[in-house]
Design a binder for these strands. Sequence first.
DNA 1: TTGTAAAACTGGTCTGACCACTGGCCATTA
DNA 2: TAATGGCCAGTGGTCAGACCAGTTTTACAA
Lengths: 251, 251
Amino acid sequence: MAIAQDISFRLEQLILDGGLTPGQKMPSERQLATRLGVSRAIIRESLHELQGRGVIETRHGKGSFVARIVPVDEGSTGDSPLQQMFNGHPRTLYDLLEVREQLEGQAAYLAAERATDLDLHRITRAYEALEQTNPLTNADPDHSFHQAIVEASHNPVLVHVLSGLKNLMLLTVQASVANLNPQEELRKAISRHHKRIYRAIMARKPQASKRIAMEHVRFVRDAMHDIEQQGTSILRMPANTPESGASTTQN
Amino acid sequence: MAIAQDISFRLEQLILDGGLTPGQKMPSERQLATRLGVSRAIIRESLHELQGRGVIETRHGKGSFVARIVPVDEGSTGDSPLQQMFNGHPRTLYDLLEVREQLEGQAAYLAAERATDLDLHRITRAYEALEQTNPLTNADPDHSFHQAIVEASHNPVLVHVLSGLKNLMLLTVQASVANLNPQEELRKAISRHHKRIYRAIMARKPQASKRIAMEHVRFVRDAMHDIEQQGTSILRMPANTPESGASTTQN
DNA sequence: TTGTAAAACTGGTCTGACCACTGGCCATTA
DNA sequence: TAATGGCCAGTGGTCAGACCAGTTTTACAA
């Protein structure tokens, strides 16, 4: 599929399914380009499409904003309490992972329970590809692995929600923390987690799969939390950093 | 006015005023750029906007074509890709509740753990209002109750995701099942659940809150499942159904 | 403390390059 | 002759970097 279409789809999904609320400001075009790993031209084309659909509004020098949707006939609340909560309460990566912990756990559980032979084969292939890469420098195989598991849950809602959260992460994370800090120890721990998750699912042990998957997310969450607390020095990237891979923390 | 907007306006004029008819091919982007005296980037952004409005369609390697369908004028959402996903997918309600089970559980857990005095007060007020209504005929208090709990989790991501799922339910559920079938027994069970959830949160027992909340959702899920199995007659709603209340299974 | 100018954002536009797909032309081949 | 295959020009798709034009924040001078 064309990238621009994919991007506008993801942006719309993000807006509709819980990422951004009406009136809220979207990240700048340059930020979006960086975080989604595409050029600014693509971002602009996608934004124009959403503009055409009335999903967003753009103002020179200020930014793009989610359009206030006037519901069909509802004489509804002008400002949802939700929006207020969001504005004063910047969502954090921590919040995201708190939710993901539950969903990834459930996905692993269902995958262990419902996976077909084809699903297991896909998971295996993704796992093998994963073993040969450094998850901290290249998030793609990592993502594929988790994605395969989620899809094996055979719950489209779960797939959908987790996909939305992943997009949210791309927009939220202020520079990927982990992949700028390729700590060998962290890498090994994550690798160990993957192996355990993989084995539990292949052994069709739902409870174990769930437990391990949740532990995994919690581990990543705690690690990020620690890193954030340690101070900002870690976040400084060298001026000439090659964004090779441009991977974000997939965990 | 921004050039891109001007261009897309002129292009649309061109189409509407008879310059081009539906199905007809438009000049190439490079030609348009030359003739209108702007860069190709602008042309592309304008075309994307028209694309978003459904005025044209673009095919790689071939060109852009005037869309055959006459626009409904309103920026009415045709079919969101999401909705498509759920059309013809009868398991969806079940899938939805499967996900909600996890999230409502987590919300209850966090609420019991993090709720401020104000949060507890809100929950109490919502609960009291709830006690005086029949949740099967009026979903609003029910919704408020659950909403108050979710907000007390102080996790905006959780709030958002659950809000999205609720919207999804409104789109998905073909007629609310439960409230068409006001079975006294069901009503009492749900009421009992609410009381237990309320008490567990007020007592600040995270684990218990989570467990009970999950049981609650699972109960509703199973009930719906049973009802669906019993035959479709229940799902038929009168043609002229007033969506009054439009309450869906809030539980 | 207050004003104002500079700096640091944001979106708007342009350029020129390269990739990927489509369709037609044409030589080779069966 | 008819079918196959490669070549090539045209078209949309994407990218990087540059500069212009509004907006907001910062910092310094009065």
